[in-house]
C-alpha cells in the first residue's frame, strides 16, 4: 500500500464542524466540534438564552479590566526599577566601598603602603589610561581567542561524548571511573605535559582551558539526555524517525538548554584557568599583563586588569545566560 493510497479525504468533509450532521446522525443535541469541553462556552452561544442578562454584564466588564492593565501601576514599576536598577547599583556600591576600605587600610599601614595602587581611585585612573591608549584591547584579544578556542574544543568534544554517555548506560559505566579520575586532576597539573606536548604556548594554553572546560559541558549534556522523557523517543520512533532524525529533531532540541548551562559553568572554570595558564611563556593576554604589572610594581595597572577580567567574565556569563534562554523550551514558572 502506497502513501498516496493512504491519504484520507479530509478536505472533502466540510460538514464536520457543523452540528447539523451530528444531530441527524445521533438525534442528540449538537455540540460544536471545535469547542473543547474544558474551555468556557462562548458568551451568547446556544443554550445561553435563559441566562442572557449575566452574560451581557460580563461583556461590559471586560473593557474595564483591559483598560486597567494598561494603566500606570506604581507597585509594578517600583518592583521593576528595584530589580533592574536599585539592587544591582547597591551591590556594586557595596563592592566599591569594601574595595575603597581595603585601599584605605593599605595606604594607612606603613608596611604595605607601597601597594596603595590597589585602591579604586588609582585603579580606575590606570584603567582609563589603558582604554584611552587602546592597550587594553591588545591585552584582551589574545585571552579571548584562547578562551574561545578552548571552549570550542570543549564543545566539540563534550557534546558528542555527553550525548553518547547519556544514551548508553554501558558506555556510561565504562567511562565513569576514568572520567571522574581525569576530572579531579587540576587542569594546571597538566601544565608541564601541555608544554611538552604542544609546539606553541598558545596551543598549550588552549589545551589547558579545554581540559578544564570539557567536563561541565560533557556532564551537563549527558544529564540532559538522561532527563529526556522516554516517551519522546517512543513517539518519534513510532512516527518513523531514524537515528539521525532522532538526534536532530528530538535529542538536540531537548538538551539545548542543558548544553549551554554546561557551557556557562565551563566559561567560569575556563576563565579561572586562563590567568594562571597565561603566566606560562606567553607575552600577551590578561594573565601575562598581571604578571608584568607585578614585576614592574605597577599595582594600579594590576588592579585595572583585575577589573577588566571581572567585567569580561561578567559579560561572557551574561552571553551564556541569554543562550540558555534562547534554547530553553521550559515555560517560565
Amino acid at each position: 500500500m502506497t502513501a498516496a493510497e493512504g491519504t484520507l479525504p479530509l478536505t472533502a468533509e466540510p460538514a464536520l464542524t457543523g452540528g447539523e450532521q451530528r444531530r441527524s446522525a445521533g438525534g442528540r443535541p449538537a455540540r460544536p466540534a471545535a469547542a473543547d469541553a474544558g474551555a468556557p462556552a462562548p458568551p451568547g452561544g446556544a443554550g445561553d438564552a435563559g441566562r442572557s442578562a449575566p452574560a451581557r454584564s460580563a461583556v461590559i466588564e471586560r473593557p474595564a479590566r483591559h483598560w486597567h492593565t494598561r494603566t500606570f501601576r506604581w507597585p509594578a514599576v517600583r518592583a521593576f526599577l528595584l530589580s533592574t536598577v536599585a539592587y544591582p547599583a547597591l551591590g556594586i556600591a557595596v563592592l566599591l566601598a569594601l574595595w575603597w576600605l581595603g585601599g584605605w587600610a593599605i595606604a594607612s599601614n606603613e608596611d604595605v603602603s607601597a601597594f596603595a595602587g590597589f585602591a579604586p581611585a588609582p585603579a580606575f585612573a590606570a584603567l582609563g589610561e589603558l582604554v584611552a591608549s587602546g592597550d587594553v584591547w591588545g591585552t584582551i584579544y589574545p585571552s579571548l581567542y584562547r578562551i574561545g578556542m578552548g571552549l570550542l574544543w570543549a564543545f566539540v568534544i563534550g557534546v558528542p561524548v555527553g550525548v553518547a554517555i547519556g544514551l548508553s548506560s554501558a558506555l556510561r559505566e565504562v567511562t565513569h571511573v576514568p572520567f571522574q579520575f581525569l576530572r579531579m586532576i587540576s587542569p594546571l597539573a597538566w601544565m608541564p605535559i601541555a608544554v611538552l606536548a604542544f609546539a606553541t604556548w598558545d596551543g598549550a594554553i588552549v589545551f589547558l582551558i579545554t581540559v578544564a572546560a570539557v567536563w561541565p559541558v560533557l556532564f551537563s549534556t549527558a544529564q540532559g539526555v538522561r532527563r529526556i522523557d522516554p516517551l519522546w523517543f517512543k513517539v518519534a520512533r513510532n512516527l518513523g524517525a531514524d537515528g539521525w532524525q532522532m538526534l536532530r529533531r528530538v535529542i538536540m532540541p531537548a538538551i539545548g538548554q542543558d548544553i549551554f548551562a554546561g557551557l556557562r559553568l565551563a566559561v567560569g572554570v575556563a576563565w579561572i584557568v586562563l590567568v594562571p595558564a597565561e603566566y606560562l611563556g606567553v607575552t600577551s593576554g590578561l594573565g601575562y599583563a598581571i604578571n608584568d604589572a607585578r614585576d614592574t610594581l605597577e599595582y594600579d595597572t594590576l588592579a585595572a586588569i583585575v577589573v577588566v577580567i571581572g567585567i569580561i567574565g561578567f559579560l561572557l556569563d551574561g552571553l551564556c545566560v541569554s543562550l540558555i534562554k534562547r534554547f530553553s523550551w521550559r515555560q517560565a514558572d
Binding site: 502513501a3 522523557d229 516517551l231 519522546w232 517512543k234 513517539v235 518519534a236 513510532n238 512516527l239 518513523g240 524517525a241 531514524d242 532524525q245 529533531r249 528530538v250 532540541p253 531537548a254 539545548g256 523550551w329 521550559r330 515555560q331
Partner: peptide
C-alpha cells in the same frame, strides 16, 4: 500509530510542527 496517556508533544515545536513531524520524518 500509538497514542499514549500523556500527549508527549515536543514543547520546542508549535502545534503545527508537532502535527507534521511524522511527515517531516518521511
Amino acid at each position: 500509530n500509538m497514542m499514549f496517556q500523556k500527549p508527549s508533544l515536543y514543547p520546542w515545536m508549535s502545534v503545527r510542527q508537532n502535527a507534521e513531524l511524522g511527515l517531516l520524518f518521511a
